[in-house]
Design a binder for these strands. Sequence first.
DNA 1: CCGGTTTGCTTTACCGTTAAAGTAACTTGA
DNA 2: TCAAGTTACTTTAACGGTAAAGCAAACCGG
Lengths: 341, 341
Amino acid sequence: MAPTTTMKRIAGELGVSITTVSKVLNNREDIGHATRARVLAKVAELGYQPNAVARSLTLRRTHTLGIVIPDLMHSFFVEIVAGLEAAVSARGYGLLLCSSNENAKKERAELDMLRQRQVDGIVLASANASGNSDLLRDLTGLGIEIVMIDRDDHTDVRCDRVLTDDEMVGRLATAHLAAQGRRAIAHITGPSIVHAKRRADGYRAALKDAGIALRPHWMVKGGFMESDGYRGMKKLLAVTPRVDAVFASNDPAAIGAMKAIWEAGLRVPENIAVVGAGDIALGDLLRVPLTTVGWSREDQGRRAAELMLERLDGGAAAKGRFQRVVIPPYLVVRRSSGGAA
Amino acid sequence: MAPTTTMKRIAGELGVSITTVSKVLNNREDIGHATRARVLAKVAELGYQPNAVARSLTLRRTHTLGIVIPDLMHSFFVEIVAGLEAAVSARGYGLLLCSSNENAKKERAELDMLRQRQVDGIVLASANASGNSDLLRDLTGLGIEIVMIDRDDHTDVRCDRVLTDDEMVGRLATAHLAAQGRRAIAHITGPSIVHAKRRADGYRAALKDAGIALRPHWMVKGGFMESDGYRGMKKLLAVTPRVDAVFASNDPAAIGAMKAIWEAGLRVPENIAVVGAGDIALGDLLRVPLTTVGWSREDQGRRAAELMLERLDGGAAAKGRFQRVVIPPYLVVRRSSGGAA
DNA sequence: CCGGTTTGCTTTACCGTTAAAGTAACTTGA
DNA sequence: TCAAGTTACTTTAACGGTAAAGCAAACCGG
């Protein structure tokens, strides 16, 4: 194994002190022209690379961030990670990737791991921060910056947040269906988290704006899984008069709903129009391409990175109030809502 | 900002030496029962967490691995990362995620970054290791273990490899088409890398096994992108007598091929059967579900992790010859090949 | 030509941890 | 009863780097 090139070695071979080498590498003023040149030559000759671990220890900055997401198999989070990674690596930061597997205990373990590794900051896309806000407060107390993705609760954790406007998601989806002339617009709700509740709020608000009275049984309890949408739609199909449109709380649920509709011998969008939310990848390659409301996850990741880096590297000016950045949702019209080619 | 709890602080409050605390935490034998209990109590009281950076510096082990992939937006690599992350975090290792964006220069930069951060090992899913095998040799020379994913070239880099059997991929796809009674089976090749060449070898071998003579023009140059498949199929549609099946070198190319077929007013699989390779996510939600040959990327990531950890933590026994682990491919029959429901 | 400043370097200390060597006090065994 | 362990610690040094203080030699103005 090749001997590692350290500043000590460079200093030794040149007959100067280690500090001199350090100063050259950090562009300090008080080193003479000749010495600087000699050191630089040696550095190039030996291919010296600084040891980031040692550097981190003295500087008390690792230039490393942690990202904790609930599930690596979900394209949703991966897109956030992609946006984050790009922004973060461009600024010379490393990114420690952690998956909590939707499990609060594993999340705790990952957060502890990140703490021990002395990361400068953590971006948290928590499925379930609920149990862990004590830990999060500890972390901020230790000077670890936190940016939360898609979480508007746990307001006792002092951090920036990057989220979408979930009420607008529900509004856009529902208003679009109303604009297509649908009048019996149902909603398969999500799980009991703020996001889903706000989407339902948007649904109700858009119905009202369209002058449609919300009928009983139009809102059925669902969830964020395909099977939830399937079950929810089964229930809706029993409602008379039959609904002519449904807004599912996310895309997987919408896909489940379409399956239930087809099973019942009905057609999408002719009999029932369907709109989802989330704009998942390949959504346009489905048997019936799915109309959905999305927002840029890459932006979400990128903005999270920017907030974080601003706090870490920005001047004192950056240390102001914690921010809530909202990524605006957009409507993607495809065949399932009967709205486009 | 809360004061960080260090061993020094614990030692101070207890009136013992730092080493004593260290020994307790590392379960050394030579500490008395009473002292051990006092230290442990203090550790619990102050919620002490070891500083991994300092630990890494003395131990010369960071318990951190790097993973370098070409593209985070491609589900293929993400699945590998998922398998890797699970295995690695279960063993207490951290994972630094890097994307090379299919760019040899960025890859170099990321590898340098990982070297400076003193990672114990690097898992490399290189789109283009070509230019960087010098760097890779440097890294192994420094004692950084490397595991290459899906790469069988650069044999001068001493490392383990986890790959699939690409010839078998081509064989399975082609033999399946032959088994469906197709006789004019074309192939849209991939880019000029070993993988693609081996898939083409498998294609030729399976044709031979089926007693089909390979006709000129049946093999057209393609690539791994949807547009490559589209263009390749356009060319194939001009061949007479018309082919009745096509094996595309990967799934995106197969999707492109299907689009070209539909544009020509033909049907899949009735007129032309299509098989891809890779088994990308959501492949079964396509307008015509795609028959494909896949292999478990999670396994690939997991096996990479196992090889790596075995080398890092395993006894001397593990330091033997470098291994080539082959992940077996499997056939997924869906509608596009006319083979299933 | 002498006190003070500037220039260009070195010395010392520290970041938080572990390993190796050192050392008292307390057993042993013959 | 005393040399030779054994037990339970402490001291010292090191990992690779940075920051602060120190210090000679050259330079400068009056």
